[in-house]
């Protein structure tokens, strides 16, 4: 049991209206590892996290989380499972009507009958872990983007989850808070014995801490392996994505008629 991957995604298909987002995706997340899911914007990376968290249901295939099939769980069981997951949302998603302390105490107060004294100690420990014990009385609107994300991280680990999911944790961060977050994600994962999933398109930062990397494009897993292995991958697409080249398998030009022809035809069409 403990050797089985924490998350097993098999033949996952999902579409929104006519748009196919996933088409037969297989992903394994090993226990204790940091796994990165990367791909261009709009490849449904956030959707993948929602599918793992049971907020969306797949059209086909299955998501197995710690031996439980997420899409078939009843509400009670799903909520019990979610108490063991932490999610860091793209913008933090802090509750804006509470200060930092109450935000982190929120899941504890909702789910545990702990005394306020104990909750205080727990909250301060989580805040200390992200280096913001001094900011406990600030309101979310008074925090910088990087601080908000660290507070949200402290809230996500408040219930001591078995798994953390990070949705674009590095987007829009200055280099310092980016470095802080990179280090935090890795140390928290190892210190708390978590399993982490990072969804991102910040290649350098993500590759620096990921044990496993999945590259998604066009609804499929294009490449998979350690960061070094991917760097040597012979997939032209992977090379273009990892090196950030403007043209390649993903064309720079939106599909259009021949350029010269288009220019000459100006009088006829427009």
């Amino acid at each position: 049991m403990s050797d089985a991957p924490l998350v097993q995604i098999r033949n996952l298909s999902f579409s929104r209206g006519d748009r196919v987002i996933f088409d037969g995706v297989d992903i394994d997340i090993r226990r204790g590892s940091v796994t990165a899911i990367m791909g261009p914007s709009g490849t449904g990376k956030t959707t993948l996290l929602r599918l793992i968290g049971g907020q969306l249901k797949p059209d086909n295939g299955s998501v197995l989380l710690d031996g439980e099939e997420v899409q078939h769980l009843r509400r009670g069981a799903l909520y019990r499972l979610r108490k063991r997951m932490g999610v860091l949302f793209q913008n933090g998603a802090l509750l804006t009507d509470m200060n930092v302390f109450d935000n982190i105490a929120f899941p504890l107060r909702e789910h545990t009958g702990l005394s306020e004294a104990l909750i205080r100690s727990l909250v301060l420990m989580k805040l200390e872990a992200v280096g913001l014990r001094g900011a406990r009385d600030l309101m979310p609107s008074e925090l910088s983007g990087g601080m908000a994300r660290r507070v949200a991280l402290a809230r996500a680990i408040a219930m001591d989850p078995m798994m953390m999911m990070y949705d674009e944790p590095f987007t829009g961060q200055d280099p310092i808070s980016m470095g802080v977050l990179v280090r935090l994600i890795r140390t928290l994962n190892d210190a708390l014995g978590l399993t982490s999933i990072i969804v991102s398109h910040d290649i350098a930062e993500t590759c620096a801490i990921a044990d496993d990397v999945y590259l998604l494009s066009g609804g499929k897993v294009v490449a998979h392996g350690t960061a070094e292995a991917l760097g040597k991958s012979d997939s032209a697409w992977a090379q273009q994505f990892l090196n950030g080249e403007a043209d390649g398998p993903v064309a720079f030009h939106y599909p259009a008629a021949d350029y010269a022809e288009d220019l000459l035809q100006r009088e006829h069409n427009n």
Binding site: Q55, Y79, R82, V87, F89, L95, F106, P107, E110, H111
Partner: peptide
């Protein structure tokens, strides 16, 4: 959405 994921 965050509340839902916190099982609230």
């Amino acid at each position: 959405s965050a509340m839902e994921m916190m099982a609230v």
